[in-house]
Design a protein around this nucleic acid. Structure first.
Lengths: 99, 99
DNA sequence: CGTGTAAGGAATTCTGACACG
DNA sequence: CGTGTAAGGAATTCTGACACG
């Protein structure tokens, strides 16, 4: 959609901005915490969203969390949001008569 | 300031997005129409703003303008905006008593 | 003037592996 | 488990120059 989500940044630049090592960034991709795109040549391309997510991951790692735990937390958050959204939908269907 | 102005994109990616050749992009830099940053290693880094400017330049080039003419137009626009802003400032100083 | 291209070299990134813990 | 590193190779980028027009 916006600039924030366009995958255009090389791993070296991401490393500089986040302060994470290239090795760390690659590892978090391996653990499926981030999903960069690739050029035809195979070099990774990240978005600003990815960078924000990496900063988040870095914080969690500092707290002593494992990559798998971080992933679980994300999924839980996602599920909770989805559930709340559906509940709101039900409420609207039952009572929401305003245009 | 925002994502739009952070210089983080490699020339190859800029070329892909804009449809311009790498040669063309380097030339427009040489003519001082764009101002990418450099890494310590010397590779160019562009922002989304640079990309937008390049699309603009490409349109002007299609119209048969020379790089120098494009640069002049930009300067004229900048000067006009500055002038208008100063005029508005004068008006406010003379009549603007609202907080 | 604006752009393509071949040339040679340097910076950047990639993967798979070993190490340590 | 998470991360550093040396290894070898491939993709990316850089500059200065010649060409064409």
């Amino acid at each position: 959609m916006s600039y924030k989500d366009r995958k255009v940044i090389n791993i070296g630049t991401v490393s500089e901005i986040t302060g994470l090592s290239i090795r760390q960034i690659r590892y978090y991709e391996e653990r499926q915490l981030i999903f960069p795109e690739r050029t035809k040549g195979g070099t990774r391309k990240f978005s600003f969203s990815d960078i924000e997510k990496l900063m988040d991951i870095a914080n969690h790692m500092e707290d002593g969390l494992q990559t798998l735990e971080i992933k679980r937390m994300e999924n839980q958050l996602k599920h909770r949001q989805l559930r709340d959204q559906m509940i709101r939908g039900q409420i609207n269907a039952a009572f929401g008569m305003r245009k």
